[in-house]
Amino acid sequence: MKKTVWVLVVTLLLVLILGLLCAWVSRNTVSSMKEKTALIAGLIQTQEYEEALEETKNLSSQWERRGELLQIWTVHEDADEVTVLLEILSVSLEEKEGLHALLACAELEQSIEHLYHRDALKLQNFF
């Protein structure tokens, strides 16, 4: 009986702590990266490609730092998609191809959002 109560408490704590911690890190990373993506999109629309490229490099280094951690609990294909889109965005900005860069930016925003939303506690995810 005592063992069962211990298992009950320990598993509940582990599920809650790990679940909340993963969700918190994912949400923070995703919201900060989304803000940066919106900023980059704005710079592209005003054709400030140099500044946009600089912001994209910052975003890439942020992703390098956080991406490895996120891959502990997110599907690796989802993380790889963000890496690839960041590369496409950088190349488009270097070539000053505004339309391609905007498209990459939109896709990147979706992919970043996907990192958190697949696991978010929502009714549509539950079903």
């Binding site: 298992v7 598993t11 599920v15 790990l18 993963c22 609990w73 997110t74 599907v75 690796h76």
Partner: peptide
């Protein structure tokens, strides 16, 4: 697929079992 995708549901099921 992250290892946690297997481990976390097992933990959750152990909780329900207890």
């Amino acid at each position: 697929t992250p290892l946690l995708y297997g481990l976390m549901p097992i933990l959750a099921l152990l909780f329900v079992h207890a």
